[in-house]
Every structure is written in structure tokens, then in C-alpha cells.
């Protein structure tokens, strides 16, 4: 059965918005990579001097893309010099000011933020493609209910980390709800693990996992490479 016009329109609108975010994320990732390649020249490990200027890239990203609450870079630990700071992540505070986010990266510490194990990093590292992760409670990180877009980058041919951005679930809602509400029946944007990112009614609540098998449930994959997003709807 062909999806109704409203569903196709909504899918197009969602695809175009999400592709926009994905493209911005990739652009950030490319800028980070080229800045690092330039700064490192002959050196093999990322040192303090190489990080100079990355803050400006995050700031520019956040100033331009007001939907994002945080943006920056996480490095693969093996690409950073001993004792160096393996991240450069900036976020928008309540006041609107942009400041660097701090994490505890001491293995064994009770507040250890093991980002390399988080899917936005590990999937990007293993596949070499951009990722979409969330909604998730970013405990010990940004500590809110968010989703993360991330794109991997390489320096001198080796995987060196990911650049990406965080979007608060509550900030995402007003941005994409109008598209979902234009669909007459129950519908939701879901991620690759069948989790609801946002639904247009109480039937599909953000964060819930969709059990497949309901015969009246249809699925339309969104044409955004590697992110695994779909629109489900009940005609």
C-alpha cells in the first residue's frame, strides 16, 4: 500500500531537517580534521597546542545552529598525547552563554564518563560513518535527556575521534512536532533500535520501544544515510 500524501510530506520534511543536521555535523567534523592536520604537521599525537582553535569551531556551530545545546569533539584516547585532554565539548548554558563541558575521565572514578563505550562514539569508530544516538539520559555527560549526532574523522589516515552535537529532547519537540502532527493518524519518528524519538500522540511516547508485529503499523525508512531512522504510522 502506498503511504498517504500527508505521511510522504511529513517524511520529506523530517528527512530534510535531519539531513540538515547531519550535514552540519559532517562539516564540523571536516573542519576539526583539517584544523588538526594543519596544527599537527609532523607530530603523531594530539597535544595541547593542537586543540587551540577547536573552541572557536564549536562556538561557531552553536551560534549558527540554535537547535543544538552542545557541540564539539571527543578524541580516541590513543590519538591524544599522554595526560592530554581528549575532548573539546562546548555547551549552551541556561543564561545563553557558551562554556566548556567538563567530564571525569579517570577510569575507576565513580563519575567516570566512558564516552568511548557510548554508541555515538563506538559505532562511529567501528563503522567509520556518522551516527545518531538517542534519546538517552546522558548521565555524567551533559546529564539531560538528549540525542547526539556524531561524525568520525581521521588525522593522517587514522581514526582520531568524532565531532558532533547534542540536541535536548525538549528542544527537538517543537521543531519536528508540526511535521508529525500533520499526519492524521498515530505516527512517530523512531531510531534504529525501534525507540521512539518523538510521536504525535500518546500512543507513541518518546523513549518507548516499539514492538513490531501490529498489522496496522506501517514503516517508512527516512532517506538519511547510516542513521537508521524511520517513520512509523497507523493509517
Amino acid at each position: 500500500m502506498k503511504p498517504a500524501t500527508e505521511v510522504v510530506h511529513a517524511a520529506d520534511a523530517l528527512t530534510s531537517w535531519i539531513s540538515g543536521v547531519a550535514m552540519e555535523t559532517q562539516k564540523l567534523s571536516r573542519s576539526v580534521a583539517s584544523l588538526l592536520e594543519h596544527k599537527l604537521a609532523g607530530k603523531s599525537k594530539i597535544d595541547k597546542a593542537a586543540l587551540v582553535g577547536l573552541d572557536e569551531l564549536s562556538r561557531e556551530f552553536l551560534t549558527k545552529n540554535t537547535f543544538a545545546v552542545g557541540a564539539g569533539t571527543f578524541f580516541a584516547t590513543e590519538s591524544v598525547e599522554e595526560g592530554g585532554r581528549p575532548w573539546e565539548w562546548w555547551s549552551r548554558k541556561e543564561s545563553g552563554a557558551i562554556g566548556r563541558l567538563d567530564f571525569d575521565l579517570t577510569p575507576g572514578s565513580s563519575r567516570y564518563y566512558n564516552y568511548e563505550k557510548l554508541p555515538f562514539f563506538s559505532t562511529a569508530a567501528s563503522t567509520g560513518e556518522q551516527t545518531f544516538w538517542g534519546p538517552y539520559v546522558d548521565y555524567l555527560g551533559f546529564e539531560e535527556y538528549i540525542l547526539t549526532f556524531a561524525a568520525p574523522f581521521s588525522v593522517h589516515g587514522n581514526f582520531a575521534g568524532v565531532a558532533g552535537c547534542d540536541i535536548r529532547i525538549k528542544d527537538l519537540e517543537p521543531l519536528i512536532m508540526p511535521s508529525l502532527r500533520a499526519i492524521p493518524g498515530d505516527a512517530a519518528l523512531i531510531n534504529a533500535s525501534n525507540r521512539v524519538v518523538l510521536g504525535n500522540s500518546g500512543r507513541y511516547l518518546v523513549g518507548e520501544r516499539i514492538k513490531s508485529g501490529s498489522p496496522d503499523q506501517h514503516r517508512l525508512d527516512l532517506d538519511v544515510p547510516h542513521l537508521g531512522l524511520s517513520l512509523i504510522y497507523t493509517p
Binding site: 511529513a10 520534511a13 531537517w17 521543531l175 508540526p178 511535521s179 502532527r181 500533520a182 504525535n200
Partner: peptide, 10 residues
């Protein structure tokens, strides 16, 4: 988010 008849508001 008012009525569902609103076309995508982006």
C-alpha cells in the same frame, strides 16, 4: 501544536 491539519511548520 494546535490542529493536525497544519502543514509542516518548519
Amino acid at each position: 501544536y494546535a490542529a493536525r491539519s497544519i502543514q509542516d511548520g518548519q
